[in-house]
Amino acid sequence: MAPDRKEVEITDEVTAINRTVKLLKEKGIKVIVVLAHDSAKSDQSGANSSGAIDGSKNR
């Protein structure tokens, strides 16, 4: 990684989205839209090894 990018932490996108959805719901946010890119590791259905995004379900 470039020296000027040490402050950037690369994490699993599903984990990051789930964590952020939880925080937003706690703040009263009712509508959340996630725009994500399917990585080359995803299969044709869009699933990946880290599982489904929890916030995508109606609750």
Rank of each mutant, 00 (worst) to 15 (best):
M1K: 02
P3G: 08
P3I: 07
P3F: 04
P3Q: 06
R5P: 05
K6P: 05
K6G: 10
E7L: 00
V8R: 07
E9P: 01
E9C: 09
T11G: 10
T11L: 09
T11P: 04
D12Q: 04
D12W: 00
D12M: 02
D12C: 00
E13T: 06
E13W: 00
V14C: 01
T15Q: 07
A16L: 02
A16F: 06
A16N: 02
A16V: 01
I17N: 00
I17E: 00
I17P: 01
N18W: 02
N18H: 04
N18L: 04
V21Y: 01
V21K: 02
K22R: 11
K22E: 13
L24S: 00
K25Q: 01
E26I: 05
K27I: 12
K27T: 14
K27D: 14
G28E: 10
I29D: 04
K30A: 15
K30F: 10
V31S: 15
I32F: 09
I32Y: 10
I32Q: 11
V33N: 09
V33Y: 07
V34M: 08
L35M: 14
L35W: 12
A36M: 14
A36F: 10
A36T: 15
A36S: 14
H37G: 11
H37R: 12
D38V: 09
S39G: 15
S39Q: 07
A40E: 10
S42T: 14
S42R: 12
D43L: 04
Q44R: 03
S45H: 11
G46Q: 07
A47R: 12
N48M: 05
G51W: 00
G51K: 05
G51V: 01
A52C: 04
I53L: 11
D54V: 13
D54I: 09
D54C: 09
D54K: 11
G55V: 01
S56M: 07
K57D: 08
K57T: 08
N58A: 14
N58D: 15
N58S: 15
R59A: 13
R59S: 13
